[in-house]
Amino acid sequence: MPSLKTLKNRIASVKNTRKITKAMQMVAAAKLRRAQDAAVAARPYAERMGAVVASLAASVGNREGAPRLLVGNGADKVQLVVVMTSERGLCGGFNSTIVRMARARVQVLQAQGKTIKILTVGKKGRDQMKRDYGQYFVGHIDLTEVKRVGYVNAQNIARDILARFTQNECDVVTLFYNRFQSVIAQIPTALQIIPAQFTGAATGTVYDYEPDEGAILADLLPRAVATQVFTALLENAASEQGARMSAMDNATRNAGDMINKLTIQYNRSRQAAITKELIEIISGAEAL
């Protein structure tokens, strides 16, 4: 039986923990709002880009000499896996779900005899992937210093990926990130960006192209890759805050439960001590 003093200290400490998790939840809620706004604001660009590239790809894609970003370089031997995670922990299963999915994919690809290369974005994913696949790492992109992800960050990542592709260091590039569905549901997603896969509906309008279709497509595809990376970054940011919010909500509730339990225990032992003292006094009086 712990003493009254230790129980009291314990309750005070759990109360402090609850205060912290509560504050973290509120901060996450505010950040989530901002992240969601950013994701919504970025949507028109991504949608337009997808639609235009899709309709261009439909008309140029099957021709001889189509851009390699679109049709690939004819091989799928070297697979670049881009694992996008958060820079900070305490966000529930957010990082683990991405890493688990990436790991499963790596195992499947290895079983098929492919060469794996791993590029990580975000510290947490790097730490988790390093344990099993450290030898496949080809790079890491650090966003610790970045307060709000901007298009510039996406451009840097895209530039890195494109450079690797043009230098024939990889054949297929797949992004792993969490798609934001709601505060309690984030869906781990694998998106293959090279060779590009676009699922926008062609508009049906017949356009003139200036310069010609091929040149436009060659110009747009790298941008489209950057846009996809940007979308993934934003979705990830929103998911991270959502996951953190629900994790901290749970933690706050658990701390509350624990305080209740400890308080009951504290009161019981206090009552027991009083009863014990009374008995001692009474039996002492009787003995006289």
């Binding site: 261009l56 309008t205 017949v206 356009y207 003139d208 192209y209 200036e210 310069p211 436009i216 747009l220």
Partner: peptide, 8 residues
């Protein structure tokens, strides 16, 4: 009423 064009 401009003709449909896509340009960089």
């Amino acid at each position: 009423g401009h003709a449909p064009v896509i340009t960089t």
